[in-house]
């Protein structure tokens, strides 16, 4: 039985809008966080660390660890596990502190 979380809670609506991650469209459900939409598409990393350049994504899932920081609609350092997804949101991998343009 290929059960899904949405089946389990009896969700009547499917993904109804899209956001983009890089150049990739990602389906999202109303009420989902950006991190949840990305996990739903099998994407687990959307940040690289400041010194090692290593990939990171959501870890604590409740806004405490700040590992899920992403650049959302041009704004860096947003906690993707807390920020709700909105139609047309543009999410890109945040590199380092996310302020490279400041030099």
């Amino acid at each position: 039985m290929a059960r899904t979380p949405a089946d389990l809670v009896g969700t009547r609506t499917g993904p109804s809008f899209e956001i983009t991650f890089g150049d990739r469209p990602v389906p999202a459900r109303p009420g989902q966080s950006v991190a949840a939409a990305l996990w739903g598409a099998g994407i687990l990393a959307w940040r690289t660390t400041r010194s090692g350049g290593r990939p990171r994504g959501a870890f604590c899932g409740i806004g405490q660890c700040y590992d899920c920081l992403a650049t959302i609609n041009g704004q860096p350092n947003r906690r993707a596990c807390l920020v709700p997804a909105h139609p047309g949101d543009v999410v890109v991998t945040q590199e380092g502190h996310g302020h490279a343009s400041l030099g």
Partner: peptide
């Protein structure tokens, strides 16, 4: 707890 939280509110694994 993070996996649980993401599942409870975001319905994802």
């Amino acid at each position: 707890g993070g996996a649980q939280a993401m599942l409870k509110s975001g319905l994802v694994l």
